[in-house]
Design a binder for these strands. Structure first.
Length: 415
DNA sequence: TCACATT
């Protein structure tokens, strides 16, 4: 495989290359934490649990519970297992550490486990690292419950709540059915007013089942309308479903690349996450006013779809860099590096064809405007053009992507 | 009509 992923990773890791060195943020946040003292208050991002947000060994129940194994929630999307270990290793010796990732995509699920050798270090980690701000997240550190099937799928989605109902009242309503691990009421981003929907995670699935039986279609005290209580969607299943539909429903599967490419796609996806801070594959990023359009893809005509014009490529660029860059964003049917006939060196530009307009647009939007070293990926959206295509009446979109010099000089383009 | 908590 031509791309030097290790080089990219080490560059990212060195801090001199990433837009905002991760380690610097960790240290800054830790200093704040230490000076202000630990807090159990969840701030911006995490759901809070009134009853047992800061679980202690005493609260966590059974004496069977591990006093060394911690679960860490609300980790930044781009945080690696190594960074997790590094952060928690600053407290004491770690027996094992695991960042949980989606089995298929490899994307971090935003939580992990840290098992210390000494229970005292586990306690210290809760006291010093719970509530630590990392990027946009506020991490939660608590004792992990013993893993078992009984605690899985215990998350409920509740809708139709009175807008006046508080989180405390919600927990009071549900606590009669079991031990609540987390609760959350979703609020309007602008007004802060309750949207009347929320989540309740119970300790055990049977508790959640009883809560559905007892509360679904029932009116809470004082409410005029009944609420709906059901099991929440499982986010990792959702991700896998989306991936499977991409792999199996996309017309792109008519033109499968090398099998290994699929796997590498995901690894690069993670690197792009780190480098740009974007979630490429399922990015909610949308181009204003642009309707999602599927490109017409005629079998045997790999050139149809949505064509992206890439320029400022290095002389030694090859097709794999184009696969690597655009593959994470969706179905890529064809790439082409234009070479000089005599020297066989890249003439500085190439083409990428993507099946789906929205994936192409997200690729462009995601690759645009992110700092790499002292350069900025430039991508003037105003230059998006729709051109008539000889192959279909849909037309071909032409995008322009400028790859900065540092992008070429730091190992992305290879031999 | 849904935010990322059990390896």
């Amino acid at each position: 495989m031509a791309v030097r992923l290790c080089d990219v990773a080490s560059l990212l890791r060195s801090g001199s290359w990433a837009p905002e060195p991760w380690t610097g943020q960790v240290i800054a946040a830790m200093e704040t934490q230490l000076s202000n003292g630990p807090t159990c208050n969840n701030t911006s991002n995490g759901p809070s649990t009134i009853s047992n947000n800061c679980s202690s060994p005493v609260e966590s129940g059974s004496i069977e519970d591990s006093k060394t194994n911690l679960i860490v929630n609300y980790l930044p999307q781009n945080m690696t297992q190594e960074e997790l270990k590094s952060l928690f290793g600053s407290i004491g010796e770690i027996e094992s550490c695991k960042l949980v990732r989606d089995k298929i995509t490899g994307q971090s699920l935003g939580y992990g486990f840290v098992n210390y050798v000494d229970p005292k270090d586990a306690e210290k980690a809760i006291n010093t690292l719970n509530g630590l701000r990392l990027q946009t997240k506020t991490i939660k550190v608590s004792y992990a419950r013993p893993s078992s099937a009984s605690i899985r799928d215990a998350n409920l989605y509740v809708s139709g709540l009175p807008k006046t109902m508080t989180q405390k009242e919600l927990e009071q309503l549900f606590s009669q059915y079991g031990r609540i691990i987390t609760s959350r009421i979703l609020v309007d981003q602008v007004t802060g007013v309750s949207r009347g929907v929320g989540f309740i995670r119970f300790d055990r699935r049977v508790e959640a089942e009883e809560a559905i039986k007892g509360l679904n279609c029932q009116k809470p005290p004082g409410a005029t309308e009944p609420i709906t209580v059901k099991f929440a969607n499982n986010p990792s299943q959702k991700t896998s479903q989306a991936l499977l539909s991409q792999l199996y429903q996309s017309p792109n599967r008519r033109y499968p690349g090398p099998l290994a490419q699929q796997a590498q796609r995901f690894r690069l996806d993670n690197l792009l996450n780190m480098a740009y801070g974007v979630k490429s594959r399922f990015s909610p990023m949308a181009i204003d006013g642009v309707t999602s359009l599927a490109g017409i893809n005629i079998p045997g005509h790999a050139g149809t779809g949505w064509c992206i014009f890439v320029y400022n490529l290095a002389p030694d660029a090859d097709e794999s860099i184009l696969w690597q860059m655009f593959g994470p964003f969706g179905a890529v049917t064809n790439v082409k590096v234009i070479r000089d006939f005599n020297t066989n060196k890249c003439k500085g530009f190439g083409f990428v064809t993507m099946t789906n307009y929205d994936e192409a647009a997200v690729a462009i939007a995601s690759l645009n405007g992110y700092r790499l070293g002292d350069r900025v990926l430039q991508f003037p959206l105003s230059k998006i053009q729709k051109r008539p295509s000889s192959a279909s009446s849909t037309g071909i979109l032409c995008f322009y992507l400028v790859i900065p010099r540092t992008f070429r000089d730091n190992g992305w383009i290879f031999h």
